[in-house]
Design a protein around this nucleic acid. Sequence first.
DNA 1: CCTGCTACCTGATGGC
DNA 2: TGCCATCAGGTAGCAG
Length: 281
Amino acid sequence: MPELPEVEAVAQSLRPLVEGRKIRCVHVLHPIATKPQAPAKLAHATEGQQIRAVRRKGKYLWLELATGIVTLHFKLDGQLLWFSGAKELFAKANKLKPENGVHVDVAFELDKGVLGFADGRHFGRVLAWDSEPSCPAIAGLGIDAISPGFTTPQFTKLLAASKRPIKEFLLDQSKVAGVGNIYSCESLWHAKLNPRRRANSLTAAESGKLHKAIVSVLARALECCLHPAPDFRDPEWWFQGLEEILRVYDREGKPCRRCGHPVKRSTQGVRATYFCAHCQK
DNA sequence: CCTGCTACCTGATGGC
DNA sequence: TGCCATCAGGTAGCAG
């Protein structure tokens, strides 16, 4: 389910568990999770290697190995799990009766502990690449939305070059990486901008306001995601309290928290957009 | 190059 | 209760 703040919280929580660890072996329990790559490719690329670092850009997370990288993308529902060892993994993973165990697609058995990647919906992917630049998905990402390089002038320039509706622009990971459906709606609400406005129609002042809104919305969400931080040992773990910081997302028909007019839901592309037609101009 | 649309999966929810 | 349609925080791939 994650957008940038959720993935960042996962990255921060994962670092102390895996950095410096060695991957003993990989168990691909649901081969769909490595498609279009063969499970053997992941095994050959990772087994015996040390995890040098955990990195993130946009919604992509990756393990930097001594040679090569492994990208993890959670799509809508993916998550990480932690097991004390192979014994616990196999005792719990993928039991016939779901209530007796947890779903795991790919498991990395480390010299201490086991890292599991799970996505019951099977959208998420675990893929091996020779290097960071050779991963097309990462190479195609725009500027990370919480990186120092994401500045107002930079953002204004990107906006000016696009004729698309601003909501669709924000979802385009090749422009700004990390903003998804929820936080795009939230940022536009905070900046009081109508989601259908063309990106290149924003004034300098509006661009600045939107930039500020994105940065603060993501920062607030990250704080929320880190308190409490994800606990991968608990198979039920998930982010807590995010609904409480949302001002407009998923509030169709409810009063706008600023002006009281009912929040509208419309569709842009195939995605739902929530906004206040009265105070977002 | 840009844009718009479908496919990819599974599970939860709500209407009839 | 059961069935069916719809929806979900994402992105790759393809056609125009």
